[in-house]
Nucleic acid binder design. Sequence first.
DNA 1: TCTACTGTCCTATTGTCATAGGACAGATTG
DNA 2: CAATCTGTCCTATGACAATAGGACAGTAGA
Lengths: 170, 170
Amino acid sequence: MVFHVDFKSGKPVYLQLVDQVRYAAASGALRPGDLLPSIRPLAEELRVNRNTVAKAYTELESRGIIETAAGKGCFLKENDSPLNKQVRHKLLVARIDEAVVTAYQMQVGPEVLRGLVDERIQFFDRKKAGTQPGSESDPQEKEQIWTPTNPSSTFPISADVMENWTPSTD
Amino acid sequence: MVFHVDFKSGKPVYLQLVDQVRYAAASGALRPGDLLPSIRPLAEELRVNRNTVAKAYTELESRGIIETAAGKGCFLKENDSPLNKQVRHKLLVARIDEAVVTAYQMQVGPEVLRGLVDERIQFFDRKKAGTQPGSESDPQEKEQIWTPTNPSSTFPISADVMENWTPSTD
DNA sequence: TCTACTGTCCTATTGTCATAGGACAGATTG
DNA sequence: CAATCTGTCCTATGACAATAGGACAGTAGA
């Protein structure tokens, strides 16, 4: 698992790390039981304070995504949210609604939206299938995890998106 | 269009207003050309500073969602984002990925996710159909717009979700 | 033109977030 | 036990976001 941070993105570093772990777990690049990098070395590698990494890990633990033990390290947990079913459903619907509304404003119709959703579901599932124990091909492929481009849900949009800004027209 | 703010949500008031307009536009509760409440009266009604409302409107204008004219007021624009196609696509995929990853962590499988997406697409489309000129049934229904429950993409999750928290198990 | 409405700009204050370093505590290894 | 890993807690600080009030500017209608 290779982490990286973008200081120009405007997004807090600790949230960048949180999302990288979340996405890695969802895509199968990280599997339950996997040991995450320990705080201090990772902080040094990324040139950030160790508390920034610690904050990310704390956040992940509070979301039930990792398990942490002083003296041992941090491990990816089995995928089970600490939230009850009703709350999980509510949380998910909120994200879906956000995507649906965004699709409307991005002038993407329902059919195309459904297609994109399918595409992204497959994108994550395909990666997971490729990392099941016993079916690994190239060990290095496990390192090639994908990271979110603009995980922040609020404007101002991130730098890499702004680079492609044009005043109007398609 | 009825606005309301939740001061306990932890989400900035101006963003709450932005999302309410976004969602109202996507659902058809607000239609192009519609006049939005003017800044001062709305601020007074919501018990917030006028600059808070003004900031929301500025944000909406920068996203190409409303048009504003000093001395006249703010109007909902025709739906056309100022971003180019590539950027719009990128932004949308980011939201979709966020939903897909959330689904994974909420232990919702691909089939159920697809079903939920369909459901929410229809939810917004059905409202839009009901507000097309010439097909209105109950005028009061136009005021009954839906507002997002937890549009914030980051923990801590909003108060209304926390109320339903339980330590574990479905 | 006068009044009353509209939105805009400038500046100040407040609070919180993100980050940082020092000191502490549990676990492992030799 | 000593050394060295691991994560944790406490406190401080800098920056920025969110909100607020005063003064200004464009528009409409009597």
